[in-house]
Simulated assay, not measured.
Amino acid sequence: MKVEIWSDVMCPFCYIGKRSFDSALAQFEHQDQLEIVWKSFQLDPNLPDVPVEDQVDYLQKRKGMPREQIEGMLHHVTDHAKRVGLDFRFDQLVMVNTFKAHRLIQLAKEKNLGHEAEELLFNAHFVEGKNVADEATLIDLGEYIGLNVDDIRAAFYDDKYSYQIKQDIQEGQSLGVRGVPFFVFDRKYAISGAQATEQFTQTLDKSFSEWQSANPTRRLDVSGGDSCATDGSGAC
């Protein structure tokens, strides 16, 4: 069964939501029958690749709220993150465009490393205060999860990955995605926002049960005879 997750690297609730989803996934007995697909989404495609302001200044301009209110909001998000085991450092956070980071994610998805890439990029952005628009930083992160350095460099300028990012965004919008994180289960159920682990567990159980009923495992009626097996049984 497919689970699709629309997300942006700069979204704190996407990391919090991922952590809750991961907790539910760890308890799910059929996780080997799930296909987890990360989908790109950009909250602010107009941000520059080079940081020009901190998180508070950026949010002040974007939301038109007083500095004290923004700081209180970030404190609330930090507390929320701690409840799922994350240590956000908004004081070190680097506000940059996430498009190159999404290029790395798209490459990682081709190698079945999308989940690993998302975790590493979230941690780099929110915990380590790294610039996720910097190519050298992204190369180091990609190499850490096993991607080829030349493939990473090529991905920064390959139109294929740019197209895939835009396609993910358009697909999400057609499904009604207006904010992230947004989790879609078998294209039947959805969870919007950083919900509790219990909510993910319930939705996983419900959607998988229905999917399993619609896609029963075929069992063959086998007539036995002499054979050789991988466990060494038989004559060969």
Rank of each mutant, 00 (worst) to 15 (best):
A133D: 11
I36K: 07
I169V: 14
A108Q: 14
G17I: 03
L93D: 02
M1R: 04
G224M: 08
D221A: 09
N123M: 10
D87I: 03
K82F: 00
I16T: 00
P45Y: 07
D151K: 08
A154I: 04
A124S: 15
C228S: 13
K188S: 15
F156E: 10
V77H: 04
V52T: 15
H80F: 02
P12M: 02
D22Y: 01
H102P: 06
H30W: 03
F122P: 12
D134S: 09
Y161H: 09
F99N: 12
I139N: 08
G224P: 14
S40G: 03
L93E: 04
N46G: 13
I139K: 11
N215M: 05
G179F: 05
E171N: 14
L86F: 02
F156V: 04
A101K: 09
L120F: 01
Q92E: 13
A81K: 02
E135D: 10
Q167C: 06
D205M: 10
S223N: 07
I5W: 08
T98A: 12
N112Q: 15
A190K: 11
M95P: 12
D32S: 11
H102N: 09
I36T: 05
M10I: 15
Q195C: 10
D44G: 03
T197C: 05
E119H: 05
V50E: 06
E4G: 05
G232H: 05
F90L: 01
Q202R: 15
P66R: 06
Q27W: 00
V37D: 10
A190I: 14
K130W: 04
T78I: 02
F99E: 15
K188I: 11
P45V: 08
E4K: 15
V177L: 11
T217P: 06
G129A: 11
I165E: 02
A101R: 08
F99T: 14
G114A: 14
P12E: 03
F183S: 11
L121D: 02
D87A: 05
C11V: 03
T98D: 10
V52F: 01
D79G: 00
S227C: 09
A154G: 01
Y161D: 10
E119R: 08
H75A: 10
D168H: 06
L93G: 01
R62S: 14
M95F: 00
E29G: 03
L113I: 05
E53N: 06
D226H: 03
S227H: 07
T203C: 14
L113F: 05
Q69D: 08
T78K: 04
S23Q: 04
L47T: 01
E29C: 00
Y163R: 12
E110V: 03
E135H: 10
I139M: 13
S233E: 09
D49L: 09
N148H: 01
T203I: 07
L47S: 07
F28R: 00
R219H: 12
E198I: 15
H30G: 00
R19Y: 00
Q27L: 06
L204V: 05
G232P: 08
F208I: 10
W6M: 02
V132C: 02
V9A: 00
D186E: 13
Q164M: 14
R219M: 13
A194C: 09
Q69A: 11
R187P: 04
Q69S: 06
D158E: 05
D168E: 09
S213Q: 14
Y161G: 12
Q92G: 06
E53K: 14
R19C: 00
D32T: 03
A24E: 02
